[in-house]
Structures are given as C-alpha cells and as structure tokens.
Design a protein around this nucleic acid. Structure first.
Lengths: 342, 342
DNA sequence: TTTTAGCATTCAAAAGAACAGAGTGCTAGA
DNA sequence: TCTAGCACTCTGTTCTTTTGAATGCTAAAA
C-alpha cells in the first residue's frame, strides 16, 4: 500500500530509531531482504534527501532522518496498531479503587516511562480559578508552629516557624482563624496583595506580629508556583546520543532544572492531532530532544499536561500511542467517577 | 612547628586538593620554593608511602594522598583558623527574624554548598517520638477530597482522592473527625496498625468506606519515611574526577537516588570530633566520595543531619569548618529562640 | 524506461608509531 | 644527611596509516 519511496523512508527511520547509527543502502538490504538492489535504494535515498526527509552527517555516511522526515513519518507512515500491553498495564493501575490522584499519575507515568524508555513528566499549571481553601496552624513544641495552606485544587504548602515566647498561642490561633476567614476563597494570584492589606489587622491580634505576617506572606507566594514532577530521568541519559559525551550529559541535567524548559512544553509545541502534540527537536534551543505531550483534565483539580521526553531519535510511534492510551484511560476513569457508577 | 615530613605531606595534600593531579617532587619545589632539593622530597615521599599516607597511581607517577593520609591531615595538619566569611554569611541569613525552619535550612545549605563547592544535604530522621498532630479533610470539587496529615514535628503529607457519589460529604467529614480524634497523639510507627483496628468503625460512618480506609492507610505509611533534601548536586558532577567520564557521572547520579546512600551517612561514619563526623571514601561501596556531617537538634522538630558531600579529594579543611560554623550558628540561634530573648 | 552491477572515491574511526614530559629510584660525592 | 646526576618507566599526545562502510556515477541488463 505504501509506495516504494515511503517504504524505504519508513525502514530508514525505524532502523535509525533502533540502532542510533546512520543507515546505508547496503545495511538496509542486508537486514530487510528487499526485492530490489542497494543501487536502487541509493537512488531513492538521493531523492528523499533532495525532498528534505533525510540528511547525511558527512559525504560518505549513511542517511539520518531530518525533522521533516520524522514529521512525515508520524503523520503518514507510523503503525497505528494498538499495543495492548500498555493499555492493560494502565487499566490495572487505574482500576485499583483505592488510588489517590497523586498515585494514579505517579504510577501511570512510571509505567509509561518504563515501557517507552522515555522521561515522563506531569506539569500541573495554576489556573486563575485556583483559590485558597484553608489556612491552618498546628502548634509544634513550645514556641514554634506549622502553618498549612490548601487550595481548592488540592495543592498543599506548609512552613514551620518560631515565634517569641511573649506571644500567646491563643492569640496566634485567633489570628490564624481570622486570616482563614478572610482569605479563604481568594484566588491564588490575589493572595499576596490581599495579605498586604491585612497587615495592620494582624497587629490588633498580636503585639509583635511581624514574624507571623512575613512568614505567611512568603509562603503564600510559593503557592502560586507550578508543580512539576518527572519520572525516569535516567532514560534520557542512557541514550547513546548523550551517554558517551560528558558535556551533553551535563547539558541534559541542566535542562531538567531549567524552568524555561517546562514552559516550552506547553507553549511552543507543533500541534498534530486531537489533544496530543508533538515537538520534534528545537526544545529550549536544542535540536536533539523531542516531546510528545497531552493535556488532561482532572475534575476538581484542573488541567494538567503529561509529556514524554526523549531524544529526537525516539520511537514516536510508541510514544504517541502511549500518551494516547494514557489520556483515553484517564478520561474514561474520570468520567466513570463523575457519573458515580463506579 | 611541623616536622619536615608532615610539612611535605601537608603540601602534597593541599596541592592535590587544588589541582586534582598527582604531585611530584619537582612540582613541589617549583611551586613552593622549599629549603631542600627534589631528591630529599623524593626520599621523604618514599617514607610517607611506606607508612601508608601516600599512594602512586603507577610506577613513575606522582603521589596521591591515601585515605589514611587524609585522616592524618584532618586530625593533625589542617589549618584551624576560622574563615569569617562563612560565619558572616550564615549570620546574615539566620538573623532575618522572619525565617521559617525550612528556609533557614535551605538557605544555609545553599550558602555552604556555594562556598565549599560541595553538595549539601539535610536528612530529617523519624524518631519514635514523632506523633500525629492532626488529620483533616478539605473537599475538592464534587466528589473528591484532599486529606492532610500533620505530625507534631511539622511534617505534612497530603493526598487527593475521589469517592463515590453516593457517599455524603457530611458522613465523610464526620468520619474524618472521628479518625482525627482517635489517631491524634499516636506515634508515627503505630499509625498503620492502629488504623487497621479502626476499619470496622469506618464502615459505621460510611457504607462503602473501603476507598477512604485504603487511601488513609497508604498515606499514613508514607508519613513514616525520612525526608531528604539536597542542594548543589552539580558541584560534584563538575569535579574533574567525574566530569570527564560519562560512566562515573551516571554512577554519581544513581548514588544520589539510592536510598542506601543516605542511610550510610548517618550510620557508618568515622567519628572525629564533637558532633562532627568525617567519612573518607568508602561511601556506598565507592572509594571516591567523602562526607562531612553533623547532627543538629531543632527544638520542637527533632534531630536532623546536615552533610557536605564531595570527592575524596575535597577541601576537608574548609568543609569541616563550614559544617562546624553552621552547627554553632544554628545552635546559637535555637538557644536564643528558646530563651525567648530574641 | 527502470533497475542493477561495478568501480573509483570519500570520510571517520580505529590502530599503530614516535615522541615529549613528568615522574621515580638509585648511586656517588659534597 | 643532603643533593646532583642519570637511567629508566610510564602516560598521554600527535601524527600517520589502515580499514571499512558508505556514496555517486556510468554502462550494461532487464
């Protein structure tokens, strides 16, 4: 069904994905016994190169897929048959009734990472709809205390601080209760300015309330940060394109720490299909890393982005399918729960 | 005051710490203009090697300090003059009155890491005295909820879970209130068995209480885990003994993830002085990494271990002094707070 | 017109050779 | 007891050679 040129391109990409070595005409016939000669393949390769689907690393090297080649592969050439193993594994995880959202995402991502050999990532972004749901204080020892903030999306932040002996725990509790009453329901981004306005009132409750005020102010600020979790970082470092070069290993580690990297994921992706996006190379000014990602909506919690990150030479086929399956299964699960028929 | 042999050992160690290159007799003469010849140094080196303080990497290489050499250096040869810069920086941080414990430790460690070029680590260990201080529930959306556990040491754990539509939020809240009443004060290690006993009671509150029961049970288990935070991981990866060899970089990364690694820190250290311990090489079956660590007691929160981790060829001098200063300053700070005269 | 066999050519990577340099140990004399 | 001098050792660098996988092109075969 595929014409000869497409078929050769498909083989080259799949071979390169597997071996990480440039693919030559001879290698191809030796490994796939094709009904034509190496010379024919050479001719086709030349045409594929002219069209920008393949590249050479040097004049007498084999061919390597270009970004355009990968894109064409994903859109037209990849196998779309479902691998039921991923689906089965995910269902097993998700059908445990006693799962928390944290565990569901964690275990799903770990499975995805394991089965695709890619890094998986969950990015929980702050929407403007996130508000403070609760502010509480738990006394710790004689003159220290833990304050806990919870949002209506289930995000939790806590800090422990010391206070002066001459502050009465009673006053402190009343003060926190007051703040709780006044701040609950405030959107996360509005918390800091609102807290500023409340400063004078704090001093009505506690003579020397500055420590308390500053502590709460600081902690409220961190509530607004996006949360990021990654699984299987070592998968990327183990890829041959990185594992042999200390410089590149360091680069990848830096990348994982860099905040711009995560923004890139949700912003500059090249849209492909449904809610799944693929970005081939060009991640954070690097051309050797690709990302497949999808948005999922968790009822009550909000929108999260789940991504698989790997070398540009990743198995897009498998990655795409894995993400697709995860999104399907999660949505199915959440729908089930919302209907209350579990 | 130092005899010649000790003086030469000191120079060799300091030179090696600085350059990461084996030190030869000629290099020593050229860089430190000494009142004797290279031949004399060679003779002394031979004796130092016989005594096990120095080693050779191959027959015609310069000398490298052995573990024993480092130990001798730390105990007898190092400069004990205080570097006031570290002290000053730490005091600046710790004297901000509005600091939380988390921020105090975080910022102190970041400074230590920056000034010593080593990885810093805080290990908060669970004592048997840690008990549950609070168990609460915050509803999130229609049929999901976040449960929050807080211990009397300020440790917080939270999980978000879905529940069936036919469960009334009211019942759930009553159930959590009941659990809160019964579990608060229980030691962390006793929580899981105690929760098991409470299972039947949960079903009195909620018809289908299994999800809730299992969720809480699981989360209680994680409360008992030790908490670990590291700062400046890249410092170790940048050291020349690691940065050139991809295999060793990977090893170090694995080490940072390995749980046995952290246990080792608190357990198998070689005691040196006061509350500060130094382990030279032999960390987690590796001979190229050393650790300087100290226990600190935070009133109300308990005992924590703070460590500096680096290559065996670290500046023990500086590391020791940094940890010592940190412990002193933190203790001073905590004492001040306990007395309430801040 | 399309395919293939054959061949000269290209280039990277591996293997080998030569050499410089930093070091040691030992001996004999100051 | 110290030091100058020298033979020897070993690593790491640089330069050269060899090998092998690949290409592009041409001419003949299908």
């Amino acid at each position: 069904m595929l014409n000869r040129r497409d078929y050769i391109l498909k083989l080259i990409i799949e071979r390169f994905v597997q071996t990480a070595q440039p693919v030559g005409s001879k290698t191809l016939i030796e490994n796939y016994d094709l009904p034509f000669s190496s010379a024919t393949i050479r001719n086709e390769m030349q045409l594929l190169e002219n069209d920008g689907f393949l590249e050479k690393t040097h004049t007498s090297s084999g061919r390597v897929p270009s970004s355009r080649g990968y894109k064409y592969y994903i859109e037209n050439l990849r196998d779309k048959k479902k691998n039921n193993k991923i689906k089965f594994e995910l269902q097993t995880i998700l059908n445990e009734r006693t799962q928390t959202i944290e565990d569901m995402l964690k275990e799903s991502c770990e499975i995805l990472s394991e089965m695709t050999n890619l890094v998986s990532l969950v990015l929980g972004n702050n929407t403007s709809e996130e508000t403070l749901a609760s502010l509480q204080m738990i006394p710790i020892g004689n003159n220290s205390s833990t304050v806990i903030f919870v949002t209506n999306r289930g995000a939790v932040e806590s800090k422990t601080f010391f206070f002066d002996k001459n502050i009465k725990v009673d006053d402190l509790e009343k003060c926190i209760a007051m703040l709780n009453k006044r701040l609950v329901g405030t959107s996360v981004s509005e918390l800091v300015p609102k807290m500023r306005l409340l400063e004078p009132i704090i001093h009505d409750y506690i003579i020397d309330g500055d420590v308390i005020y500053q502590t709460i102010l600081k902690t409220l600020g961190t509530l607004a940060n996006d949360k990021v979790v990654m699984y299987g970082k070592e998968k990327l470092l183990d890829q041959p394109e990185f594992s042999n070069d200390p410089e590149r290993i360091k680069d990848v580690i830096d990348l994982f720490e860099s905040p711009t990297f995560f923004k890139e994921i949700t912003e500059k992706v090249q849209f492909i299909d449904k809610d799944i996006t693929v970005k081939i190379g060009g991640v954070d000014e690097r051309d050797d890393i690709s990302i497949v990602s999808a948005k999922i909506y968790i009822p009550g919690v909000g929108e999260n982005v789940i991504s698989l990150i790997g070398p540009k030479r990743m198995n897009y086929d498998k990655a795409y399918e894995a993400i697709e399956t995860l999104v399907d299964e999660l949505n199915k699960k959440f729908e089930e729960i919302s209907k209350g028929d579990s």
